[in-house]
Design a protein around this nucleic acid. Structure first.
Lengths: 343, 343
DNA sequence: ATTCATGTTGCATCCGAAGTCAAGTGTGGC
DNA sequence: GCCACACTTGACTTCGGATGCAACATGAAT
């Protein structure tokens, strides 16, 4: 029984331990521990007495001591590659809400560059997280590391290449097909595409789908590579206009931020009326997409449902290890908006 | 020496402990511990041998065991009230970058409502965070709780009422004075104000400053209370237009999101040319504020410098407890933009 | 060769809560 | 009044790494 420091009774605060509470309540440390574990064998009266003492001392069980022995930390690592992107804050907000509601804490990691992932994993391991939700590109080798350590993960809008991993994603191909279908039906023929960097999984899926469905109609579209941000949308539109000699019917951007950049550039630099003279579509359905100035024609990802699913799947796998990796694909919602002339 | 399970050598992964590494390297557990503590008394050759064994087993020191004994968790709680706000993701991104760079992990808490703070504090205490950065409104009582537990905190764009607390903030009053000064100098006389909820500290500072400087010019402006989001900016403009019978020269919104909503509403609903027929200013300097469609006249908060300062101050206080609370005030940068007619 | 300082190493202990187990309490049935 | 049984309780050990301390090694100084 360590008791070097006087109890300094009633001084709520700093370092109250279960021993301090036990002493004040006149019980053993074990009793205090049991009082805080729901369903433990303890008399209601004793628990009450202990809780009173605990409140008086401002005692809260030390999660580190608890985690050490129970091997459950209640920590979930959330890895997000690019927080300044408009899309991820919405995801993060949902995830933290859902995780908090189920008694988990969020250990947040964000990356300045995808190459930092290995470093970052080294920062995760010591904390023995119960699980991880990852919205960044993981190599098979990295997925395997989680697997070897017995840490369940959910990939968010990503999938494992060869290594199987549970994932939640929005059906990019289907969404893009829908967009292209509408654009073709409305008579657009001269297309331009603004895509993201090649290392983005969903980005390439959207791009592939767009090209495939355009090709099916005998159309080939010039491509500009951007960075998924607003500025590269502006640059993209400029590049496409030059490449096409100004003869464009529609521009497909593989996310909303670039679409919005393209819209502003089309209006500001080329004085084009959107959608009368040029249709522009995006993908994601972020908040600003519905703003009056844009009213983007886009596919809205069901972020809430996706986040909910990610959390549910993760918790299942934490409670019951060894579940088979499962890919859950969500359909996006077509938002007609007003940035594209529709059939 | 616990050794129930065979070393299962070379199987990198799950539960390697310092004892496993010690055995493989042929040294004591203490040696392993020392190998991982920089500056510890250990021979370079021994360390190298240990590191090789550690790598082979995929060993990483258990942060929970370490935190238990050292009383340093390397965790920093970051509390953000409203993640879907455009401003906070930028702050969060900066904070996580800076904190990671200094060897700290971010334990993220976000609130759906300010009233949840008490609950949330109960979730923080068990993790014995080394410090906290808080962008939410704390009551004096809550600040005192951190203080009692010896956890340094930095308030971000907030200040303690009576209880002193270290803080980092952007000078709202000065920024707003600048905006009003420019608007007055350009001849605007009929003003409207769109403010946030009354429970926002910086919001009220901006509002007070605006009113005070307008009053000094003999001007009183109608007020609409919004929620700091885009939609309430639209609502605000509509309300002000009705209240003023359409006779407005300038609208001051106390943040950018509302200003952008107001701009789109002015253009879309009232067909007004911005800034020729109506000037609209915001506050914050978020990313979208500089987008072509808005080019907001606003005050840009030096987010990077503020985040850097918050992290620096926090770490100082972690390393050296008992420092005097210090308020650091940053000046914003006036962005002329094109949403206001300037003198 | 002896002494001493400096540098390394292992042993034992500690951090704080949780769980095992055996002892203790109380109740009801007989 | 005695016994069986369910319920409570406390002593002790455990989780995994850090650290004070004493033991030991090495080389330099004498």
């Amino acid at each position: 029984m360590p008791k070097k420091k006087l109890p300094e009774a009633a001084h709520a605060g700093s370092g109250a331990t279960s021993y301090d509470v036990a002493e004040l309540a006149g019980v053993s440390q074990s009793a205090v521990s049991r009082a805080f574990r729901k369903g433990a064998s303890i008399a209601p009266k004793t628990r009450e007495k202990i809780m009173r003492a605990a409140k008086q001392l401002g005692y809260q069980p030390n999660a580190f001591a608890r985690g050490l022995i129970t091997r459950r930390t209640n920590l979930v690592a959330v890895v997000i590659s690019n927080l300044t992107n408009l899309y991820y804050p919405e995801v993060l907000a949902e995830l933290t809400q859902r995780l908090s509601a189920t008694g988990h804490r969020v250990l947040l990691f964000s990356l300045a560059a995808e190459s930092e992932i290995d470093e970052m994993l080294g920062l995760i391991w010591p904390y023995r997280v119960d699980g991880a939700i990852i919205a960044a590109r993981l190599k098979d080798e990295q997925i395997r590391q989680f697997h070897d350590r017995g840490i369940p993960i959910i990939l968010y809008n990503r999938v494992g290449d060869a290594e199987p991993a549970a994932s939640v994603a929005c059906d990019s191909a289907a969404g893009m097909r829908e967009l292209v279908k509408h654009l073709l039906a409305a008579g657009h023929r001269r297309f331009g595409i603004i895509a993201g960097p090649e290392d983005s999984y969903v980005g390439e899926e959207r791009l592939d789908s767009a090209r495939r469905h355009l090709a099916a109609a005998g159309i080939e579209a010039p491509l500009h590579r951007g960075r998924f941000d607003y500025r590269s949308g502006e640059e993209g539109l400029r590049a496409l206009m030059e490449a096409a000699g100004g003869k464009l019917d529609a521009v497909i951007a593989t996310n909303d931020a670039m679409a919005m950049g393209a819209i502003d550039c089309a209006r500001g630099t080329y004085d084009l009326a959107i959608p009368e003279q040029l249709s522009i579509v995006g993908f994601d359905g972020v908040g600003p997409a519905t703003w009056g100035g844009y009213q983007l024609t886009t596919i809205r990802q069901p972020v809430r449902r996706m986040a909910q699913a990610a959390v549910d799947m993760l918790i299942e796998r934490i409670e019951q290890p060894g579940m088979i990796p499962e890919q859950r694909l969500f359909g996006g919602e077509f938002l007609p908006g007003r940035s594209a002339r529709l059939g």
